[in-house]
Simulated assay, not measured.
Amino acid sequence: MRAYVDAFGLLFGAFDFAVRADGRWIWLETNPNGQWAFVDEPTRRAITTALADHLQNGIPHKDISRPANRHRNREHSR
């Protein structure tokens, strides 16, 4: 998935999958502006925080998946 969003220059992608009866996952599509309001609160908060950090601080999306780097960047900007 990381290679896909990188190839298209996306910062975020909502990947849609289906699961076959035999348990295999099938990729259907990727939405660059996917919705996440239906997910549980902790996950919704994490997604919102990561996107807000990027928009506010210009943090590259590679660092969003690494909370230690994100916090380190915040400390350097203070």
Rank of each mutant, 00 (worst) to 15 (best):
I64S: 14
R66A: 02
I64A: 15
N57H: 15
V39E: 13
G34N: 08
L51A: 01
R45I: 08
D63G: 00
R44D: 07
A50T: 14
T48Y: 02
D53G: 02
V39L: 13
H61M: 04
W36P: 00
S65V: 10
A52V: 06
V39N: 05
I47G: 06
D40N: 13
Q35K: 02
F38E: 02
P32W: 03
H61E: 10
T49F: 09
A46D: 12
G34E: 00
Q35E: 13
A37C: 09
G58N: 08
D53M: 06
T48W: 04
H54F: 00
V39W: 07
P60H: 08
I59S: 03
F38D: 09
A50R: 11
V39F: 15
T49E: 12
G34M: 04
T48R: 10
N33W: 03
N57F: 08
R45V: 07
N57R: 04
W36T: 06
T48D: 08
P60F: 07
N57P: 01
T43K: 12
S65D: 13
V39D: 12
R66E: 15
N57S: 06
P42A: 13
I59D: 14
K62F: 11
R45Y: 04
H61S: 08
P32D: 13
G34V: 03
P32F: 07
P32L: 01
L51C: 04
N57T: 12
L51G: 00
H61C: 14
P60E: 01
H61I: 13
A37V: 07
D40A: 11
A46W: 08
S65M: 09
I47C: 07
E41C: 02
Q35L: 05
T49K: 09
T49M: 01
I64P: 00
A37G: 13
S65H: 12
Q56W: 04
D63Q: 10
P60Y: 02
A46S: 11
T43M: 14
P42I: 11
H61P: 10
